[in-house]
Computed example of a mutant assay.
Amino acid sequence: MNTLYPVMLEPQEPSGYCVQFVDIPGAITEGETLEECLFNAAEALTGVIESYIELGQEIPRPSENIKEAYYIAPDARVQSALLIRWARGDRSLADIARALETSWPSAQRLENPHHSPTLKQLERAASVLGKKLVLSLE
């Protein structure tokens, strides 16, 4: 599963760029340099997805192969919550809690963007969801 969202940079006058996500309309930011834009984009994406999760809103999947786009991921806490949520699909949190042999609140924390699950918890959850945990540094 992919959590890299495409972002487009549009030059602004007299300087800098406007940064807009293709799939997340509420995630808009700006910056003077490319580096600043990409940093701000990650912050904006993290904040908007956190908000979507807290409000129980549907989170769009990221588009792929957008020409001239930069691809940005939210922070690790939000990525893990998002991936667990997507992998769970229609299964209830109660089903996941039973499969993990844990409490419902413990299972719910896996989808909480303010909680940092351990690698062991993520690995167990991935296994229960029929997935494999894969880490990447970029």
Results as ranks from 00 to 15, higher is better:
Val22Asp: 08
Ile84Asn: 00
Ser116Ala: 14
Tyr71Asn: 10
Lys67Ile: 10
Lys120Ala: 15
Ile28Pro: 02
His115Val: 04
Asp23Pro: 04
Trp86Asp: 07
Pro62Glu: 09
Ile84Val: 15
Gln57Gly: 00
Ile53Pro: 02
Arg98Pro: 00
Leu93Pro: 03
Leu45Cys: 04
Trp86Arg: 15
Thr33His: 04
Leu100Asn: 01
Glu50Val: 12
Pro62Cys: 10
Tyr52Ile: 07
Gln121Arg: 05
Ser63Trp: 08
Glu68Leu: 14
Lys67Glu: 13
Arg85Val: 00
Ala87Cys: 06
Asp75Lys: 08
Asn112Trp: 06
Val19Glu: 06
Asn40His: 13
Pro74Tyr: 05
Asp23Cys: 08
Ala73Lys: 11
Thr33Phe: 05
Arg91Cys: 03
Ala76Glu: 12
Gly130Met: 03
Ser63Asp: 05
Cys37Gln: 09
Leu100Thr: 05
Ala87Lys: 04
Thr46Gly: 02
Leu45Phe: 01
Leu93Arg: 05
Glu50Thr: 10
Leu129Glu: 01
Asp23Ala: 09
Ile24Phe: 00
Glu64His: 12
Leu55His: 11
Phe39Arg: 13
Cys18Pro: 00
Ala44Pro: 00
Leu4Met: 13
Leu9Trp: 10
Gly130Ile: 02
Glu32Gln: 15
Thr3Gly: 03
Gln57Thr: 03
Leu83Lys: 06
Val48Leu: 06
Ala126Met: 02
Ala42Ser: 15
Leu45Ile: 01
Leu9Ala: 07
Ser51Ile: 10
Gln57Asn: 11
Val78Asp: 07
Gly16Arg: 13
Ala44Phe: 01
Glu101His: 13
Glu111Thr: 05
Thr102Gly: 06
Glu54Val: 13
Glu68Phe: 13
Gly31Asn: 02
Gln20Arg: 15
Ala81Glu: 10
Glu123Trp: 11
Pro14Lys: 03
Ser80Asp: 12
